[in-house]
Amino acid sequence: MAKSLGDIVINIEKCKGCELCIAACPMETIALSPKINQKGYHYAIKVQDNCTGCLNCELVCPEAIITVYRKIVK
C-alpha cells in the first residue's frame, strides 16, 4: 500500500503566531514555539514527525509562509 510522507517548512520570521495552522492540522504536527521571532511573535514549528502533506496548514495560513512537501512511498 502506498504511504504518504509529508513535511513542512515554515518561514518563521514572517509567522505571526495566529495558530490557525495548528487548529487545521489533523495530525497535531504543529505547535507554537516558546521562542519568539524578530517581530516578537511566538511562531509555528513542527513538533512531530508525522506530517502527511495534507495541505490544510498552508490553506488556512494568511501569510503564505508554509511550503508543503509530499513523497509517495510504495
Partner: peptide, 11 residues
C-alpha cells in the same frame, strides 16, 4: 515542544 528537524528525504 521541541522543533523536529525536516526530513531530507521529503524536503
Amino acid at each position: 515542544l521541541v522543533e523536529v528537524p525536516v526530513n531530507p528525504e521529503v524536503v
